[in-house]
Design a protein around this nucleic acid. Structure first.
Lengths: 288, 288
DNA sequence: ACACGTTACGGCAACCGTAAGGATT
DNA sequence: AATCCTTACGGTTGCCGTAACGTGT
């Protein structure tokens, strides 16, 4: 196995033009350079430098090896650097990533004078969790969580859920709606596994089965469009319809008899130290 | 300083999916893998893998490091390979490279069943020597040589020198020319430092100064064209005008009173072992 | 209880320094 | 004689094995 310190000695020797100066350059003794080069030559099975007077001279083999040696040392330092300059990656469900994250990221980056670049990976809740699990992301922000060995998961916000209907819907004139009334309507579901189903289950309990789910769509954006087209009603995060509420393109109804909230979770590897950026980020969004 | 064997352990760990299998794969003990990874992590200042049950899992840092680690190991093996597959490089003066070398190379490659590729670097004699000296070439073939510390130089052929004149030249009808007659003609010189000057000096001795050198051109090809244009006469290697002699575009005259020859030299580093390809090549061209 | 990784420990080799010995100018 | 590299030598370090110990399923 080649050794990088031997390569380093070789490069230093070439650049310095003598064993002595190479030793000074690397801050070691001169015989050490001799040994390193000798080891390297033994390893490669060829002579790299000729020492026959008038200073060391690269042999043909040495010349052939030199560019490879340089690039090897370079990629080594790049590999070492790279790990400290890697981006900070947040995996989020689309709801969170689209509607909640942008301002949080902005304030976090400003508060921490962040020099690192940040990336957001938006996907389903499942994908976000998998990204944290596989190490592809530093932290996952999801709408539900589960026990994962080696991972901490903590709620960082409670988001209010509201019912939405189109302007032409019978409920459009109301600002509130009774729980029971929802059961009479065609219901449009969003991304499977967002946890909304769980919330509904706790909300409706036994009567859950009488809920008429007409459409199951892949994203909140799709759900909103379907509701605008008056295909049914839905329940979404309040913050995801802020825009439509003020423009009036959707009617937003508070659900009576029960404030229903969905907790949002942050998931990150347990071994991440308390003073890490990941933990700081979670702390930041939890208090924002 | 990063160590390649640590990187190797890391890659093996990732690929094998467990410390034990990585150890088997590398043929070492399992605790050794633990240590290597731990060292590597200490070196980088980050955790690369998380061991919290269910098999090792790459952390975010581990993921970021992985591609760099792979490429590092790859370039290391390439650097090691590369030196064994390097081309065999011959530096030659243009006369030799152009007029003598091609058939020699062909017969050498055939005789040795050469798997290596060969390269020829054609230049001046000075450049050829410098290329051998710097290690850019395995061997230099020149028309003269000098004492170089650490280098062997040996004559490998005596090439006959002949005078050339144009078809319209007064000497064109002759097949031989007297030494003294050359002094009456305008003389065209070739590449400076080819050694022809030295040959002429031994040929003419004291009368050298009466030689009328009209043109000093950069290459033998240029000299031949100038002679064809009847701008003067010249003295060149016999083998460099074989073509023109048979086509009649130049008249070739033997020089009377003295067979004049130029010795051709092979120069190669002294440390090159006797069983090397370089030595074999020199031996081959010397007896061809 | 079992599988898997870590820690503890010991022998041995390799590292890397100082000091002495060639070789070349 | 001076300069530069190599060789010789010794102390320390670190490698890498076996064996015992944690830890999580």
């Amino acid at each position: 196995m080649l050794s990088l310190s031997q390569i380093e000695s070789f490069i230093a020797l070439v650049d310095a033009g003598s064993f002595q100066r190479a030793a000074e350059q690397l801050g070691c003794s001169q015989p050490h350079i001799s040994q390193q080069i000798k080891k390297l030559e033994a390893q490669l099975g060829v002579h790299l430098v000729s020492r026959t007077g008038g200073g060391p001279r690269l042999t043909r083999d040495g010349h052939a090896f030199l560019p490879n040696a340089r690039s090897l040392l370079l990629s080594a330092s790049r590999a070492e650097q790279g790990i400290r300059e890697r981006d900070f990656v947040i995996a989020a469900s689309s709801n969170i990533g689209v509607y909640l994250l942008p301002p949080l990221i902005a304030s976090f980056a400003e508060a921490h004078r962040l020099r690192q670049r940040m990336q957001i990976r938006i996907g389903t809740n499942r994908e976000a969790l998998d990204r944290a699990r596989s190490g592809e992301a530093d932290v996952a922000l999801t709408e539900w969580s589960e026990e994962l060995h080696g991972f901490d998961w903590m709620p960082w916000r409670r988001e209010k859920l509201v019912a939405i209907v189109s302007q032409r819907h019978p409920f459009a004139a109301q600002t509130r709606v009774k729980k029971a009334a929802l059961l009479t309507q065609h219901f449009i579901g969003g991304e499977p596994g967002t946890g909304t189903g769980r919330v509904l289950r706790t909300l409706f309990g036994e009567s859950m089965s009488s809920l008429k789910i007409g459409l199951e769509l892949g994203s909140t954006a799709a759900v909103k469009e379907a509701v605008k087209a008056n295909l049914g009603i839905s329940i979404v995060l309040e913050s995801s319809v802020r825009e439509e509420r003020s423009s009036g393109s959707l009617k937003v109804l508070e659900i009576e008899e029960a404030d229903i909230y969905k907790s949002l979770y942050a998931v990150l590897p347990r071994e991440v130290p308390a003073n890490s950026l990941s933990r700081a980020f979670v702390a930041h969004i939890a208090q924002a």
